[in-house]
Design a protein around this nucleic acid. Sequence first.
DNA 1: ACTATGTTTGCACACGTGTGCAATAAGGAA
DNA 2: TTCCTTATTGCACACGTGTGCAAACATAGT
Lengths: 332, 332
Amino acid sequence: MKISIKDVARAAGVSHSTVSRALADNPLIAAETRARIQRLAQKMGYTPNAIARGLVTQRTRAIGVIVTSIADPFVSEVVRGIEEVASDQHYRVFLGTSHNDPQREVNLVKALREWRVDGVIVAASRVGSLYKPMLKEIGVPIVLINNQHQGAFLHSVAMNDVQGAQLATRFLIEQGHRVIGHILGPQDHSSTLNRLTGYRRALTQAKIKFDASLVVQGNGRAEGAIGVIDLLEHMPRPTAIFCYNDMTAIGALSILKQHGIRVPADLSIVGFDDIPFAAYVDPSLTTIHQPKDEMGRIAMKMLLNLLNGQKVDNVIIEGKLIVRESSAQRGS
Amino acid sequence: MKISIKDVARAAGVSHSTVSRALADNPLIAAETRARIQRLAQKMGYTPNAIARGLVTQRTRAIGVIVTSIADPFVSEVVRGIEEVASDQHYRVFLGTSHNDPQREVNLVKALREWRVDGVIVAASRVGSLYKPMLKEIGVPIVLINNQHQGAFLHSVAMNDVQGAQLATRFLIEQGHRVIGHILGPQDHSSTLNRLTGYRRALTQAKIKFDASLVVQGNGRAEGAIGVIDLLEHMPRPTAIFCYNDMTAIGALSILKQHGIRVPADLSIVGFDDIPFAAYVDPSLTTIHQPKDEMGRIAMKMLLNLLNGQKVDNVIIEGKLIVRESSAQRGS
DNA sequence: ACTATGTTTGCACACGTGTGCAATAAGGAA
DNA sequence: TTCCTTATTGCACACGTGTGCAAACATAGT
């Protein structure tokens, strides 16, 4: 029952083409007619139909955003950045969550294809082997966040995980720590491996021998930090732990408190991400800062450039160390 | 360059109508032909065009979700619930953030109209006077979360803020507290008033005189808890504070720590929302639990019922008290 | 052989918009 | 007046899909 461009045309006594052009400020239409039609359309409450427009122009001005889970504080900051830039440029955002469930991933990609989105941004922890070819089939530019890849369609903006982890670990070494544990991230995420690499590289540079028994499993979530208990039994006992991310670190803090271990007096803890809550836990968390919303903005701008046919280069972002209370000089 | 239904039709030697019906499993088409066309479409990699379909069916199977900020932990849990149900029912989610900026709100509503979404869910802290009539103009069912309203188009699923606040305050009274402060929420949100009402009602029931100087401004975010300092100077000094929400409470904890006030030994703190982090701050937060993802799911199911032309009743959810470490018996 | 009935398919229109091209009108120059 | 140029508008098609209706065909009943 919505009023269409034809209704406006009839009311104005012109053809629908004239209305279409008038509303697009096309100079072909006489300035006077243009103004008259615009006023009339306004008064009639006419709203253009983006669906019909998309059908004929073959551009939807919509982008798909695929994330693992929107409830993840890292992800929601990224999405915030994306949405900000998108809406400024009058693009709409289709949100989809995969929850690392292959079935959902398939459905999501299918839906994005059906909707003929102009581009896609993926901020999912897992861009599996099954998944990547499917994404390419959509046939539109894709920007991956924290998943480095290269290709005709695939571009990325990513954290330098190796550098960040190295920075964090080197800091602990400079604080006098020699036995440093590490809690890993989710197994299927490439950044888990990269952060481990950075950790090892810092040890090597300081001529500290890598000890595999100082590295325990985790999953990137608070409950995943349970492995910290194993680290406490390691001999000699570690005096510092570098965690895959802040959620893991926060989980570790909670468990350590239950065991009566004081942070940072007995044990220093360092996280990764600098989620908003890192500043509010007690002790507040020393961590590596990722500019999450900024990464979202960069990804969206990159996608816009791609949509305008420009060449873009992948972006790699360096981590910055934020020192707070959860770390201290050894023995202090 | 995408292949269309006509391409499939040509390849199969039939008309596009036949293909359309075959893919819809329409029994009008001979079973054998149907199977043959489906196989062919599959092999050709045909993907139906949701845009074109939406144009002719006048249903998009897309809903708009308007939130204040996706980076808010309360909001992101709600959106998670919405998206979960939506994607199960093969609905797509358009995400838009308003940031309480009138200009953005106007643009958002306009965009949703243009996209002809089937329905809208609003989880924004502010559904202002300017805003509500605009929403109605979209002409589709709308479900508001935590904004009670009634009308032909407007429906709601909301927390019982009065009951929840009353529950929290009564708990503090039962713990022996008599001088209880309150930090307010954002001014333009109705739940700010409702939680204040619940706070006052509990006091009245316990025959404690309400003291306006025990109520200070806040804004629902951590920085907004700065008013807690004023409360410390109140005479007699309060022994407990009920905060508008968990973020405010967490902000208060942080400020109190800087001032050397021990929680809960010197002062009990109670929040509202039970965001995931409430359990991980130190001391962990006593709070009122809101089933956030469940509220999202309920809202989406309600919207689905409305889209199917069913009558629905507004939903009101009771808060549950979660006792953790930030509150204690007075003087203990 | 003719008619009635049922099954299967295609024709043609609709949805709302953008745009190339032709048509018309207006104005000026010869 | 006649012709040319320029400004303005409308015609008609396209985008990809769904669907009412008629057409074509097959089958069975008399």
